[in-house]
Amino acid sequence: MLWIFKSAGKKNSNNKIYQFWCGTTIRQNNQPKELETNKFKDEKLDYIHMNPVSAGLVNEPEY
């Protein structure tokens, strides 16, 4: 996976080597949100777990 992060990092002048979070557009404007409720926390965890599946890196979130 390091080659994916390195490839994304090369496309963004704000990075020295790697970019961990990448998508169709590379953004550097993270906006932290407080996990105020269990529902909100569960939504964010589901989103994080499904990212590799959506990207086609794995077939199941547990992988």
Rank of each mutant, 00 (worst) to 15 (best):
F40L: 14
D42H: 05
I17E: 12
T24A: 08
I4N: 03
A8N: 03
T24E: 14
W3A: 05
N51Q: 09
Y47D: 14
N30L: 10
K6F: 11
N30E: 11
M50C: 04
W21Q: 13
G9F: 00
Y47I: 08
K41H: 10
N30I: 06
Q31T: 12
A8D: 02
W3E: 15
I17Y: 11
K41T: 04
N12C: 12
Y18M: 05
N12E: 15
S13Y: 08
N51V: 04
I17P: 00
C22L: 07
C22R: 05
P52H: 04
K16G: 04
C22G: 13
R27P: 01
W3F: 07
T25A: 08
K44H: 13
I17T: 13
K33G: 06
G9M: 02
K39V: 03
K39T: 00
N12G: 01
K10R: 15
F5Y: 04
N12F: 09
E34I: 10
R27Y: 14
M1S: 14
N12L: 11
Q28F: 10
I26K: 07
S7R: 02
Q31A: 15
Q19I: 00
K6Y: 10
Y47A: 12
K39H: 09
Q31L: 15
K11A: 15
F40G: 05
F40D: 11
D46R: 09
P32L: 08
I4V: 10
C22E: 06
T24I: 12
G9T: 00
K41C: 08
F40K: 11
K10C: 09
I4Y: 02
K39W: 08
H49G: 06
A8K: 00
M1K: 06
K44R: 13
K10T: 03
K39C: 03
N15V: 02
W21N: 12
L35W: 13
N12Q: 15
W21M: 10
N29A: 09
C22F: 15
